[in-house]
Amino acid sequence: MSTLAAHPFLGYDFFAASTMRSRDYFDATNAIVTPAVPFHTASEQRRRDAIDKILTLPQQYREANWNREGAAPIPDAAFHEARTFLQKLPDTFPLPEVTPEPDGYLGLEWYANKWLLYVVSFNGKGTLSCSGLIGPDRTYGTRYMDEGIPAEILRKIAKVLR
């Protein structure tokens, strides 16, 4: 097992440092080790724990008719997409409320009041169904997440939080 050790040239060997990524470290033989499982700073871990906590919903929402009015079950893939979205969300944004929706989507809702709210919803098929009320304006559309969260979505959430 590798153990974390102080490298005698750490901070001076710019060539070695340039081949390292931020979470690599040196083992006892001065070899660069990349952790198999990325570790996180304490604040990152707290954020991840908080994300896991809000995405932990009762099992009933994964079953059909959870609202006793014919609601579709929320697929596991929707939870996975929501988690990925939240992990990419800048940590300057507060975490949303998680809302199961009757058509089988999982909504992430940022809410200020009944006329100022924005929801990004996931159904496990790769699309982001976005809708909101920004004062007198209605905003809605379908977006896709590639490398990151579309800037337009971040702007809309920011308007709710302002």
Partner: peptide, 18 residues
């Protein structure tokens, strides 16, 4: 037909019924 449009209308109705 548009799911996101439905979601927006639902928000308006909920606001007006509150």
């Amino acid at each position: 037909e548009d799911r996101a449009a439905r979601a927006t209308i639902a928000k308006v109705l909920a606001a007006k019924a509150s």
